[in-house]
């Protein structure tokens, strides 16, 4: 206990807790957007965008986050352009972009002699490495996510239900789709700093998958995902501090366990109601 109390006198530990708590509430909202809009392939593309951005920033000695965020926004803009006439699906566009980003990352890494070890470090983030500026960006993004969902709940729920119905009812589908893609790009870029490119799903997608199994409404799905994300990220953070384990790994295992538990509980419920 004394060790834990001592740890919380250190700024990186406090920043880490704030970062995990705030993103635990906000980021699963982006996860709902990803899951409901079928943007999982795009999320993979953004992860590869993170790797390309990382290689690019190491090669040119530029700050990591702005480069990664700008690159991911550019990739999303390209995807929107490819999807504009409706002939190329977002899934196809993101697959093409994913291959492109990895190819480019490989070439830049080779030309600028970027050490593979440095590149791989991008794949493992750390909440202890958050700077004040990172924390501010993270809080702003989380607040923006909450505000977006609260203000545009009705059109967003209509879009999730059916694009054609939303469009015929007067929802500006192109505006909301573009905004949701941009929000997703920024969330993945920011989440990378916390958990690393490989384990973003633990904070963004897994809480949603867990909460949505038993959700009876979209409102319940949003609220349940945020609560699950918050509880998982804070609990995971404390477990990692107490047992001296990597936060991203603990959170990923915890989130996967909660998801598996959710499946088990709902199966038991179904079996009981059938008897």
């Amino acid at each position: 206990m004394d060790r834990l109390l001592f740890l919380f006198t250190l700024r990186p530990i406090v920043y880490g807790l704030i970062g995990m708590a705030v993103s635990g509430i906000g980021f699963p909202l982006a996860g709902v957007i990803i899951v409901r809009n079928g943007l999982i392939p795009m999320r993979y593309m953004l992860m590869h965008g993170v790797i390309l951005g990382g290689v690019f920033s190491i090669a040119l000695g530029l700050p990591l986050f702005p480069v990664v965020a700008a690159l991911n926004l550019a990739l999303v803009a390209l995807m929107i352009a490819m999807n504009r006439d409706g002939r190329t699906s977002l899934s196809t566009a993101s697959t093409a972009m994913m291959v492109f980003t990895m190819g480019l990352a490989s070439m830049i890494g080779h030309v600028f002699d970027v050490p593979a070890k440095d590149t791989l470090e991008i794949l493992w983030g750390s909440p202890f490495a958050l700077l004040t500026s990172d924390l501010v960006i993270l809080c702003i993004l989380s607040v923006l996510l909450v505000v977006y969902v609260l203000v545009f709940f009705r059109p967003v729920s209509m879009l999730f239900f059916d694009h054609d119905i939303a469009s015929s009812s007067g929802v500006n589908v192109r505006f909301h789709n573009s905004l949701m893609l941009i929000i997703t790009a920024l969330t993945v870029s920011v989440a990378m700093k916390l958990l690393g490119a490989l384990l973003i799903d633990a904070l963004v997608v897994l809480p949603v998958l867990g909460a949505s199994r038993n959700a009876k409404s979209l409102k319940a799905m949003f609220i349940g995902s945020s609560i699950t994300g918050f509880v998982l990220s804070v609990t995971g953070y404390f477990i990692s501090l107490i047992f001296n384990l990597p936060v991203s790994g603990v959170l990923a295992v915890l989130a996967a366990a909660v998801y598996a538990g959710n499946i088990l509980i709902s199966k038991i419920r179904i079996n009981r109601s059938l008897k």
Partner: peptide
């Protein structure tokens, strides 16, 4: 617009909420 089918079967929304969409 009343569609032929709704390809989003798992979406958690009540019948009343669907009708409320018309208010938009």
């Amino acid at each position: 617009y009343c569609k032929q089918d709704y390809p989003n079967p798992g979406f958690p929304i009540s019948a009343e909420e669907v009708v409320k969409m018309g208010l938009y």
